[in-house]
Write a protein that binds this DNA or RNA. Structure first.
Length: 365
DNA sequence: CGGATTTGACCTGCGC
DNA sequence: GCGCAGGTCAAATCCG
């Protein structure tokens, strides 16, 4: 803004100089006066625009700060409240002067139950969706469970990784069942479903980033209903762990604990790692941004501090310190989030090991 | 020949 | 109610 303002001022001055050099008679003096008046008007407008610009910048900064504050507050509430959030609603209400702080995911616990229901269900996805839409027999008593199931099913884990391969390696077997052109992105979005077991509800979408086509965005949805090979455990647990974290705000889960060890040993010493939880929609999602990973050489031993960053897509740039705080809180207090993060890191590591020369991922198909 | 992929059609949810 | 966009289905096609 300032540079363009300076440029404008420079142009005005040049114009003034050009005008003032054209002096030969009274006529030119008149023109000079006229030009001077115009310059004065322009200068006044410039000052006005600068003031307006400053005011808008102040507003933007203020809005950004408010956004970050709210986001951090929401995240801390989610972690702090956990399963006993319900009884604290009243306290929150009192603390906030009658206003209930948004906490749409915390009451949706029972993630394990949702898991069990889903794994025991042998019906195909389409049939289940139709059953969901029909509502079923017990409408009111199953409300919490239904919400939980819906949220778990809708819970998404998005992994952004820099890769030229068509798909990141996650150890599972996938079958492509569709491809669509998404609006606003010239790259098609591919739809895959897990084929390691019949009726496995897990889906994933693979799409390249419109801005940077070397970035591969893989979105996982659902929980596997079958045992997984060790190579697939980490990434597969991402969906259930991250989804469970966001849905229930829980602080522990079996798979989360399993993977938190990996994260503890590899990631926690890193103070520069950023991690945020995206909770801006009715259905939770986690974004693991691994696009800063750079494994152009054989990776181990890994310097995770330099290679991994976890961000939510809507976090503004200015939130450096806030993000650090949030990252520390998220990683340190929630093993499920840690598990999701560790799974993504593991995926990158595995794919890099399979292609030590260029770091490109192999196609698991 | 069987499994995977492609691709157009269809369904569904959502905003206007 | 209509149109649009995202998601899924399923027949056709490809490939090992």
């Amino acid at each position: 803004m300032h540079t363009s303002d300076a440029g404008l001022e420079l142009n005005v001055n040049i114009g003034l100089n050009l005008l003032t050099t054209n002096t030969s008679a009274d006529q030119s003096t008149m023109e000079d006066k006229k030009a001077n008046n115009e310059v004065a008007v322009l200068r006044a407008k410039l000052v006005q625009m600068n003031a307006e610009n400053e005011r808008l910048k102040e507003m933007l900064i203020q809005a950004t700060e408010n956004y970050n504050t709210m986001k951090i507050h929401l995240c801390s509430l989610m972690m702090k409240n956990g399963g006993k959030a319900k009884e604290e609603d009243e306290e929150n209400k009192k603390r906030n002067g009658g206003i209930i702080v948004p906490r749409q995911f915390i009451d949706l616990g029972l993630a394990v139950a949702a898991d069990a229901d889903e794994s025991s269900s042998s019906s195909p996805e389409g049939k289940r969706q139709r059953e969901d839409s029909s509502g079923g027999d017990n409408k009111v008593p199953r409300l919490d469970v239904d919400q939980s199931e819906a949220a778990m099913r809708k819970a998404r884990v998005s992994v952004r990784a820099r890769s030229e391969a068509p798909m990141i390696t996650d150890g599972c077997q996938w079958r492509k069942y569709g491809q669509k052109m998404a609006k606003g992105n010239p790259c098609p979005r591919a739809y895959y479903r897990c084929t390691m077991a019949t009726g496995c509800p897990v889906r994933k979408q693979v799409q390249r980033c419109a801005e940077d086509r070397t970035i591969l965005i893989t979105t996982y949805e659902g929980n596997h209903n079958h045992p997984l090979p060790p190579s697939a455990m980490s990434m597969a647990s991402t969906t259930s762990s991250a989804g469970r974290m966001l849905v229930s705000g829980s602080t522990s889960s079996p798979d989360g604990l399993m993977n938190s060890n990996l994260l503890t040993t590899t990631l926690l010493p890193c103070s520069s790692t950023m991690a945020t939880v995206s909770a801006s929609t009715p259905f939770p999602s986690v974004t693991l941004d691994l696009t800063q990973s750079s494994f152009s050489t054989p990776p181990p031993p890994y310097n995770v501090a330099n290679s991994v960053a976890v961000t939510a897509p809507l976090v503004p740039q200015v939130s450096g310190q806030a993000l650090d705080n949030l990252a520390t809180a998220a990683i340190a207090t929630d093993p499920s989030f840690a598990a999701a993060l560790a799974a993504a890191i593991t995926s990158i590591i595995e794919s890099s090991q399979s292609h030590p020369n260029n770091g490109h991922n192999s196609n698991a198909m």
